[in-house]
């Protein structure tokens, strides 16, 4: 377990910025104590300072996880957000997409969101903008990347993809073993 290096921090923040923009500030400066990012076995954990102090005496080999896992660094040093970060993306998300109840299930099975399943979308979402996907009952379901801008979404045919799937909460069941 160690703090992130300069390059790693940049990679993480760059990725987070795609979904929550300047709201990253709110993740780092919190009123309820200091929170920080720690790297452990290529995973990035977001953890409060207090918890961190408690965890230092656990041997590295037997430490499995602490706080919230945000994602992991791939072998080529790219940062990949995992669905476990959703709890911290959803409240701060700038661009959102709501899916209709009928296509909730399809998204939770790991499929892209089609135009036919699109309930609402934030105004002026740009193409390839990171978005958080919600159900119509405002339950966060996952996140992805807008395949079309809001303008284009109006025109495309019902079977066209509007959001590329990146992560969804179905992974908690589908791929529990590779999650963290």
């Amino acid at each position: 377990m160690r703090p992130l290096t300069e390059a790693e921090t940049r990679a993480v923040f760059e990725k987070l910025g795609k979904y929550i923009g300047e709201n990253i500030q709110l993740l780092v400066d919190r009123p309820d104590g200091t929170y920080c990012f720690r790297l452990h076995r290529d995973r990035v954990y977001y953890v409060s300072e207090k918890l961190l102090k408690g965890a230092v005496s656990i041997p590295r080999d037997s430490l499995v996880a602490l706080g919230t896992c945000f994602g992991k660094f791939t072998k080529t040093q790219k940062f990949r957000l995992s669905v476990t970060a959703l709890d911290f993306l959803a409240p701060y998300a700038k661009y959102k997409v709501w899916v209709k109840p009928g296509s909730e299930q399809s998204f939770l099975y790991g499929n892209h969101v089609l135009k036919s399943g699109l309930g609402r979308i934030t105004e002026n979402t740009a193409q390839y903008q990171g978005v958080v996907v919600y159900s119509m009952a405002d339950i966060p379901l996952g996140f992805g990347v807008a395949a079309k801008s809001t303008q284009d979404c109006r025109k495309v045919d019902p079977m066209a993809i509007v959001v590329f799937h990146q992560a969804d909460v179905g992974e908690y069941v589908r791929s529990e073993n590779t999650l963290t």
Binding site: L51, V64, L179, T180
Partner: peptide, 16 residues
């Protein structure tokens, strides 16, 4: 680990 993240538990350290 899966369950704790799914349920939004942030004050846990998991050790083996």
């Amino acid at each position: 680990v899966g369950n704790l993240h799914r349920l939004g538990v942030t004050n846990a350290v998991v050790s083996n």
